[in-house]
């Protein structure tokens, strides 16, 4: 992967994947092509995500917006309070832009529209972390 340059010098990037769909979680895990990116956890809702974030101290979180129990917007709000340094990439099907903009207002760093290609995912991660 050409975007993952000079990987030896850095400590691995810890990635937490949050999405209520199994398929999407596996898809993200499988599609990322960075040698120094380590998936430290996957969560199916906001509550799990916060719990995992506390335990694993991720650098990057991919976040769905529509999830049961605690949705992405709320989760982003609390996650930013908990770990201000964490980068958050929202990966969600864009239905209305107001919600998407709100997610960014709450502290997400970027937005990736579902469905996405491997290339788009990797470029987004590279933009945020490298």
């Amino acid at each position: 992967m050409e975007t993952a340059k000079d990987t030896s010098a850095r400590r691995p990037v810890k990635l937490l994947i949050v999405d209520d769909s199994n398929i999407v979680r596996r898809r993200i895990e499988r599609s990322q092509q960075f040698d120094d990116l380590e998936v430290v956890g996957t969560a199916a809702n906001g509550i799990e995500a916060l719990e995992l974030a506390r335990r694993t101290d991720p650098d990057l979180v991919t976040m769905d917006l529509t999830m049961p129990q605690m949705d992405g917007i709320e989760c982003i709000t609390q996650l930013v309070k908990l770990k201000p340094e964490v980068r958050i990439l929202v990966i969600s099907a864009l239905s209305d832009k107001a919600t998407a903009v709100e997610a960014m207002e709450r502290g997400a760093n970027g937005f990736l529209d579902k469905p996405f290609t491997d290339r788009q995912l990797n470029e987004a991660i590279a933009e945020l972390m490298y």
Binding site: M104, D113, E127
Partner: peptide, 13 residues
């Protein structure tokens, strides 16, 4: 400072 310009094009209203 948080938002990445390149990663918010798709949500441009």
């Amino acid at each position: 400072e948080r938002a990445h310009e390149n990663l918010m094009k798709s949500i441009n209203p």
